[in-house]
């Protein structure tokens, strides 16, 4: 692993055997993964799918996207939708506005192909 004390996994500043990373090296995001009943802290440069990063001077957290998003910019703005819904201006919708059509591969509302 790249940095961090020999005991701790990569990216950790402090850690415990039972709960993994407790604090991260500067600018990394701390994310809590579930392992059965346990929560294991991991330090990441980007939050996993379904989560977005919130930076603050004290700590950088991973928070859950809205339920309909696969990936998102923040809790109000999706960047990719789950299958079955279509992205338009940061929102995942079941149908698209009139002037657009739904693309299942992109999971987005896209301009119709010119005939």
């Amino acid at each position: 692993h790249k940095r961090g004390s020999p005991v701790c996994p990569g990216g950790c500043l402090t850690c415990s055997v039972y709960n993994g990373c407790l604090t991260c090296l500067p600018k990394l995001f701390i994310h809590l993964e579930r392992d059965g009943m346990r929560q294991i802290g991991v330090c990441l440069a980007s939050c996993p799918k379904g989560f977005f990063g919130t930076r603050s001077p004290e700590k950088n957290d991973c928070s859950k996207c809205g339920s309909e998003c696969d990936t998102c910019f923040d809790k109000n703005f999706c960047t990719r939708c789950r299958a079955g819904s279509y992205l338009h201006k940061g929102k995942c919708q079941e149908s698209c506005p009139d002037e657009l059509v739904s693309s299942d591969t992109k999971r987005e509302c896209v301009p119709p192909c010119p005939v």
Binding site: R55, S56, P57, F73, D74, F77, T79, K89, G90
Partner: peptide, 8 residues
């Protein structure tokens, strides 16, 4: 551009 952060 739809989303921009200049925070911190």
């Amino acid at each position: 551009l739809q989303a921009l952060t200049l925070a911190l």
